[in-house]
C-alpha cells in the first residue's frame, strides 16, 4: 500500500477549493454513510439493547421484559449446546486458519515457479470458490464426499486423545475428516498469495543467489517478509469466512433461537448469543493481528535503537551544558555575593 500524500495540517483553515473538494467527497460517500447508520450502527445499538430483555411478539404489540443478565445465565447454564459449540468453534478456527493459510501459501509458491499448465491448475484450485455454499457443502459432507476414504479418522482422534484435552482432540479429528472442505476454502487466498508473489522483484532473488543464498534461505529472508502483510490479510479473511459460513452451527443456532416461539427464547436471547459470538470472532481476529501484525524488521529496529541512543546522548550533553551553565551562574552569584558581602562588611565596619 502506498503511503498517503501528506495533506495540509488539518487544523489550518481550508481554502475554498479544498472546502469544495471535501463537500464532493462527502457527497460521494453519502450513500454508504446513510447505509452504515441505518444497517450497522442503529441495529448494533438496538441489539445491544435487546440483549438485556426478554422479547415476546404478540400479534398486537411487542412485549419487553427487563431481565438483566438473565439471557446470559440462561444461555450458559441451561443450554448445554451453546458453550459446547463455542468451544468447538474456537478450537476449529484457531487450528483451521493456519492450515488454510499455510496450504494456500504452499500452493501459491508451487504455482509461481516455472510450471506448465499453470492456468489449468489455477482453474482447479479456484473452482471451489465458485460453488462453495452452505447447502452444497452440507450435502457433500453428508454423503461422505468430503473426506478421503483412505484416511482413518478415528485412530487419529484416539492418538491425539492420549495427550491432549478431549475437545481439542475432537476438533482435530473433525478437521481430518473434513480435510477436503478445509482445502476448498483456500481458493481466494491462493490467488491473493500468487499475485503478491508475482510482484516481488526478481532482482532481489538474483542478488541473493549471487551472494550464495540457497532457495530455502531466500524463501525465509525475502519471500516471507515481503508477503507478511498478505499472510495477515488471508488469515483475517479466513476467520471471517469460517465464521459466516453456513457450515458453522452457531449461526444456525442464533437463527433458530430468533424464530423459536418459546417463552424464554426470542429476539433478546438471540441478541445475547449474537453478541457473545461477535466478541469471540473479534477476539480471534485480534489474536491473529497480534501474531502476524507488522513488527518492524531488524534494520528498522536497529536504526530506532541508534536514534534513541543519539537522542539520549544529546539530552545528556544538554544536561551537562545546562548544569555547567547553572554552576557557572552559581559561582558567579556566589562570588558577587561574597564580593558584596565583603564590600558591605567593609562599609559596615
Amino acid at each position: 500500500m502506498r503511503k498517503e500524500k501528506k495533506v495540509k495540517d488539518p487544523r489550518a483553515k481550508l481554502g475554498k477549493l479544498e472546502k469544495r473538494e471535501a463537500r464532493a467527497g462527502y457527497l460521494f460517500v453519502a450513500p454508504w454513510l446513510i447505509g452504515v447508520c441505518l444497517f450497522l450502527l442503529y441495529p448494533l445499538c438496538q441489539s445491544f439493547y435487546y440483549m438485556w430483555f426478554n422479547i415476546r411478539i404478540t400479534p398486537l404489540k411487542t412485549l419487553y421484559t427487563y431481565v438483566g443478565t438473565g439471557n446470559f445465565t440462561q444461555i450458559w447454564l441451561e443450554n448445554p449446546e451453546f458453550p459446547q459449540q463455542i468451544v468447538t468453534y474456537l478450537w476449529q478456527t484457531i487450528v483451521e486458519v493456519p492450515i488454510i493459510v499455510v496450504f494456500a501459501l504452499m500452493i501459491a509458491i508451487m504455482l509461481n515457479g516455472k510450471i506448465k499448465c499453470r492456468g489449468l491448475f489455477r482453474l482447479i484450485f479456484f473452482l471451489p470458490v465458485i460453488i462453495v455454499s452452505g447447502p452444497v457443502m452440507n450435502m457433500l459432507v453428508a454423503e461422505g464426499a468430503a473426506s478421503i476414504p483412505a484416511m482413518n479418522t478415528e485412530s487419529i482422534v484416539a492418538a491425539f486423545d492420549t495427550f491432549l484435552s478431549h475437545s481439542l482432540a475432537e476438533a482435530i479429528g473433525e478437521i481430518f475428516s473434513d480435510m477436503i472442505m478445509i482445502l476448498w476454502y483456500s481458493g481466494v487466498q491462493i490467488l491473493i498469495f500468487l499475485s503478491a508473489l508475482q510482484k516481488i522483484d526478481s532482482a532481489m532473488y538474483e542478488a541473493a543467489s549471487m551472494d550464495g543464498a540457497s532457495g530455502w534461505e531466500s524463501f525465509w529472508k525475502i519471500t516471507l517478509p515481503t508477503i507478511k502483510p498478505y499472510i495477515l490479510l488471508n488469515a483475517v479473511y479466513s476467520v471471517i469466512f469460517l465464521s459466516s459460513n453456513e457450515q458453522n452451527t452457531l449461526i444456525t443456532m442464533i437463527q433458530d433461537a430468533m424464530f423459536s416461539g418459546t417463552k424464554e427464547k426470542g429476539y433478546g436471547y438471540a441478541a445475547a448469543m449474537a453478541w457473545m459470538y461477535a466478541v469471540i470472532v473479534t477476539l480471534i481476529v485480534l489474536l491473529f493481528f497480534l501474531l502476524l501484525g507488522s513488527k518492524k524488521d531488524v534494520y528498522d529496529r536497529q536504526i530506532k535503537r541508534r536514534k534513541r541512543a543519539l537522542k539520549k546522548e544529546a539530552r545528556l550533553v544538554k544536561k551537562i551544558e545546562r548544569r555547567g551553565r547553572r554552576n557557572a551562574r552559581k559561582i558567579e552569584q556566589a562570588r558577587q555575593k561574597r564580593k558584596y558581602k565583603t564590600y558591605s562588611g567593609e562599609s559596615d565596619y
Partner: peptide, 13 residues
C-alpha cells in the same frame, strides 16, 4: 463492518 459478524445486526434489521 467487515469484521463484525452479521448476526449481531441481523435481529434488529
Amino acid at each position: 463492518s467487515y469484521i463484525l459478524p452479521s448476526q449481531v445486526t441481523m435481529i434488529p434489521t
